[in-house]
Each structure stands twice: as structure tokens, then as C-alpha cells.
């Protein structure tokens, strides 16, 4: 088998693993971001404190450290994850924490009149948040969320640290066997750039689809 044939077939396996990580962590990180933001803005003091503490902690740690804690330190407390799930969990927590700040800012930017009108109709707080506040806040937070998703795509490569056979780890391994760094790493780089571009286009399309007159990002 030629260099390129075996390289590409290995790399594709790694790419699939990377896509699996992303397919789980992107939607769940968005969900976590929304939940943390809602908990901070609307939770009672305890819930708000816990959510705020979580965000402060996760934003205060390098992702590498979070990842190593999840994979190496938690087992000492009796909590075990496979390398794949350790990576996914670390990514969701980190990205969710960052995303929550965009959403929180967006919620705070919604005019108080929206809330008053919802209350005046007899909506409960939960109905108000789900039907009135979040649909508007999500639209405003979307450009920021897109940014975080692109980061997430790129730093999914850190999963190699705990032994996940994903795109970057395969490339690194293959390079140690063949030592052709220019071909190997530039191909890998192209794939990451491709994924980031697809994500950018997808979220731009989503933004346009959700666009409402008068609700453009402020």
C-alpha cells in the first residue's frame, strides 16, 4: 500500500472518531450553555450560585487540566469514564460554560417589557422563559455560540491526551512511523479547516433562517 493510501484510510478512521465526539458534544454543550444561563438568571440564590460557581471554575481551568481531571482524577473518587467519554464530558462542560455567558448576556439584553407582557398574560415564569425570553435570547447569542462551536471543533484534538484515537492522534501517530510531517499535518490541518468552514456556513444559514425583522443582533 502506498503512503497516501494507508495514510488516508487511517486518517478517515480518526476523522470518524472526531465527528462522533463532536456529534455528541456540540448539541449537549449548547443545551448546557442555555441551562446554565437560565439557572444563573432565574434560579434562586442557591441554584444561581451553583451555576455561577460551575461557570467560574470551568472558565478558570485550562481545558487540558479539566480533561486530565475528568480522566485521571475522578477515577480516584470512584467515577470512571472511557477515554472517549472523558473527552466528551470535558468538552461539553468547558464549551457549555463559555456559551452560557453569551446566553446570559443575551437574556439580560431583552427588554423588561417582554417579561411584563408575558406576566400580564398570566404566563408562569417557566412559560415566559421558554416561549418569550429564550427564543429571543438564543437568536442574539447565536453568533457567540458559533464562535464557541468552532473552538470546540478545533480543541476536540486535545482528546489525543487521554488516548482517544481521533483525527489528530492518528496523524501524530502516523507521523512517528513515517515521519512525513508536511504531508501528514497539512492534510490534517485541511480537514480541521474544512470542518470549521462547514460549521461557519451551517450556523450562518441557521442565523438567516431564524432572522426576524427588528431582532437582529444588537
Amino acid at each position: 500500500m502506498s503512503f497516501w493510501e494507508s495514510f488516508i484510510s487511517y486518517l478517515l478512521q480518526g476523522w470518524v472518531a472526531t465527528l462522533e465526539i463532536l456529534a455528541i458534544s456540540i448539541p449537549l454543550s449548547i443545551l448546557l450553555g442555555l441551562s446554565l444561563a437560565v439557572a444563573r438568571v432565574y434560579g434562586n440564590w442557591l441554584i444561581s450560585l451553583i451555576a455561577g460557581g460551575f461557570v467560574a471554575l470551568l472558565r478558570g481551568l485550562p481545558l487540558v487540566v479539566t480533561l486530565l481531571i475528568v480522566f485521571f482524577a475522578l477515577p480516584k473518587l470512584g467515577i470512571y469514564f472511557s477515554p472517549f467519554w472523558a473527552a466528551v464530558i470535558a468538552f461539553i462542560m468547558c464549551s457549555g460554560a463559555y456559551q452560557s455567558e453569551y446566553v446570559r448576556g443575551a437574556i439580560r439584553s431583552i427588554d423588561v417589557g417582554q417579561s411584563l407582557a408575558a406576566q400580564a398574560l398570566g404566563m408562569t415564569k417557566i412559560q415566559e422563559v421558554i416561549y418569550i425570553i429564550l427564543p429571543q435570547a438564543f437568536r442574539r447569542a447565536l453568533p457567540g455560540i458559533t464562535n464557541e462551536i468552532i473552538y470546540l471543533i478545533l480543541y476536540s484534538s486535545l482528546a489525543y491526551l487521554v488516548g482517544v484515537q481521533e483525527l489528530f492522534s492518528i496523524a501524530k501517530h502516523f507521523n512517528s512511523l513515517q515521519f512525513r510531517p508536511i504531508e501528514i499535518f497539512s492534510t490534517t490541518a485541511l480537514i480541521y479547516a474544512f470542518m470549521a468552514t462547514i460549521a461557519t456556513l451551517f450556523f450562518r444559514k441557521l442565523e438567516n433562517k431564524l432572522k426576524i425583522p427588528g431582532l437582529e443582533t444588537i
Partner: peptide
Amino acid sequence: RQKIGFVFQEFNLFNHLTALRNVSVGLEVV
């Protein structure tokens, strides 16, 4: 509050909903 209609000085229409949905959302959700 369901029994009290409230019309605000600043309108406070729901910005992300059409005129029709602004009127129907209370009926559907509440």
C-alpha cells in the same frame, strides 16, 4: 392575571412573534 388584560404605554409586543402569534400565544400557552 389571565382575567386582566393589560395594555402598556410601550406596547411590549413580543418581538419574535408575528402580530397573529402575539395575539394567539397567550391562548395556546396559558
